[in-house]
Design a protein around this nucleic acid. Structure first.
Lengths: 216, 216
DNA sequence: ACATATTTTTAGTTTTGTCTAAAAATTAAT
DNA sequence: ATTAATTTTTAGACAAAACTAAAAATATGT
């Protein structure tokens, strides 16, 4: 399994999550910043290896073994992210890039020991669940802040967009996972919300609200 | 800088250490388990980039910038080895393989933070010195056990051979870095030694003795 | 339904790092 | 010193993963 093949599988897994499972060539190309023709080539190779189901002009979906590989990668990626934040004091907007490299290190023992060092975390720094050795993970109940009603409250448990720009925005506005958030008001005109976060009152746009998850 | 290029530079650094600095094509090929013709190609490329001095049919030596790259890699490799032993409880014979992968991770911040987490160690688990950010390291005074005289004593500070087989041998015979060792007797016939290690008496062959360093 | 637009695939290149086989240079031996 | 052995380099090929440009299939709009 090469780095490149692994990157494809992880991308296809993520793209399949928010869809019916079938992923288009263009979608993969976009996500990996590559050309559709390159995707076609790679997708054929992965299908050969039994990691993908592929029908020409239709798209691909992960086979069971493909999904297993993807879940192992995601496990590694997210464990490394926890390590970087907890042990090396990286901020949550800096970890993705480095974890993307670390996830390709091949050593089962390494990842199991790392898991133990971190005391078997269930969620990464962005609130995403970490699969266990068998690829199982808790699918936590959560809902988008933008879809909640005035008066409701909850704990911030995740972000939908985990780009560095968004995460830095949250830092600047002192919004963090674990914060207690209550919706005080919704502006009809633009959908912006007034929130009570850990005692402070703050106003955020609809765009921001649609990228924050609260528990439910 | 690709993984492969980095591997060549590190290999050339190590081969240059125990020699006059000039390294032969075959020596590199052997160390990297590749063919001499491949080495010639790569060596040309690295010379193009100003990392090596290369004269056809003569061999190569690192330029200053080549040596800097090599020292950075060695720094990363050895820091990761310390991490694996200290934090993840790997044994010293298991770390090399994994560190060989980890040393290629590109993130200056990562390595500085790791250095801090480990409290700026000066030596790796095999007693080899860890270069600092500027590539400087202490060249510790040490001598081979095989070259010491009966009656002399010292602390075990390093191994010359750091292959897994040798390290496991030392484990089995309870010989570890930091141990106090005194030479009790030398057998003239085969050069084997009787040692007093931390109170225990033990006999080792010349081969073993010529791969153990004591301080001096 | 038909023409047009979009998506996907094919065909043919490129780059990187490797290889084999053969040629050239260097080193060793008698 | 000339031949033989070894080392190193060249030349040509290959696999992986990407690309461009053009062709084929699918989807869309009126």
């Amino acid at each position: 399994m090469t780095h490149s093949e692994e990157n494809y599988l992880r991308a296809i897994y993520h793209l399949g999550r928010d869809g019916d499972g079938y992923v288009s060539t263009n979608a993969i190309a976009d996500r990996l910043a590559t050309k559709p023709s390159s995707v076609t080539d790679m997708v054929k190779k992965l299908a050969e290896k039994g990691l993908l189901d592929y029908v020409r002009y239709q798209g691909v979906s992960l086979t069971e073994s493909g999904e297993n590989v993807a879940l192992t990668l995601i496990r590694k990626h997210r464990l490394w992210e926890v390590f970087l934040v907890e042990k090396l004091h990286f901020s949550w907007d800096e970890v993705h890039e480095v974890a993307e490299q670390l996830e390709h290190i091949k050593s089962e023992k390494l990842i199991d020991k790392l898991d133990a060092l971190l005391q078997y975390p269930k969620y990464d720094p962005h609130g995403d669940p970490i699969p266990d050795k068998d690829g199982k993970f808790e699918r936590r109940e959560k809902k988008l802040l933008s879809e909640m009603n005035v008066g409701e409250a909850g704990i911030c448990v995740g972000v939908k967009d985990s780009s560095a720009t968004f995460l830095k925005f949250l830092d600047r506005h002192q919004i963090a996972l674990g914060n207690n958030i209550k919706i005080m008001e919704r502006e009809e005109y633009d959908g912006s919300l007034t929130l009570l976060i850990e005692g402070r009152e703050i106003s955020i746009s609809h765009q921001i609200a649609s990228n924050l998850y609260l528990n439910s």
